[in-house]
Amino acid sequence: MNAVKTSKLVKEFNGLVAVNGIDLEIKKGELFSLLGPNGAGKTTTINMLCCLLKPTSGTASILGHDIIKNPFKVKDLIGVSPQDTILSKHLNCWENLSLMGEIHRLESKELKKKSEELLETMGLTERARDQVSKFSGGMRRRLSIAMALVHDPEVVFLDEPTLGLDPQARRAVWEYIAELKGKKTILLTTHYMEEADCLSDRIGIIDEGKIVALGTSEELKRNHLDSQSLIISAENFGTKVIENLRGKYSVVEKINGGLKISHKDLDFKEVIDYLYSQGVNIYSAASEQPTLENVFIQITGKRLRD
């Protein structure tokens, strides 16, 4: 059974289509990342899946339970860390975690054990008895994630979990999420390509309410980057050599005293052999590794979004 399944999911707000027919299947134990520019429909999708918004049309289910027909069963199974860090500000860490635990009817022993564990993981033990209104943004976000996990949900929605965290805290959260992999089904949205790349089993790129690319990070890079690049550092490129290269390959640009050559199905050996034959003294030649960001920009374009 799929942990999350959506079928032709649509959400319109006063005629504005925010989510436009999303079909998703996330397996149990999978960590799935939704990547997309601002306003692409990531949060709206998550809000529908956690029963905060009713879809305009289409259906979705969590572990087989329909989000419209059986919302309370769905809410029993999920844990949500919203995009904005939302806590009860006059409560301390323990009390915020207890609130979530009590609502999910956790036994007090279990609640205490789980809270201790999460506070430790999130580095909040020392400040656990302080009112969260005195916390820094990073501490609040770590507590917010802990609140989504305290009741040991089967499906976890993490909407930009590391937004605003410093690198140390971000890495700590990543480690924790990586530990959860396989044990929980996680749907994560993020703007950090590195985060999606290193954590996800699969990635869906969403733009203007539609899934425009779907697959593992490797698949996306392989299928969506239509050219390879070679970066060559050398002593004596002649103007003629460069002109010849430009005639043969689609992109040839000078960078930091070297050359970057990009072309579909670029034959590296052919380039190196040619340069040797022209007497160019090569120091180094390296193929440029494609990044998820290259894929993301190629698919979604460079246009700024609202």
């Binding site: 029963c51 309370f72 809410k75 029993d76 919203p82 939302i86 009860s88 609502i103 999910h104």
Partner: peptide, 17 residues
């Protein structure tokens, strides 16, 4: 307004709760 209620609405708490 500050979104806390929305967060609580993702929990199984019922309207009367």
């Amino acid at each position: 307004e500050d979104g806390f209620l929305a967060r609580m609405l993702t929990t199984p708490a019922r309207p009367w709760d």
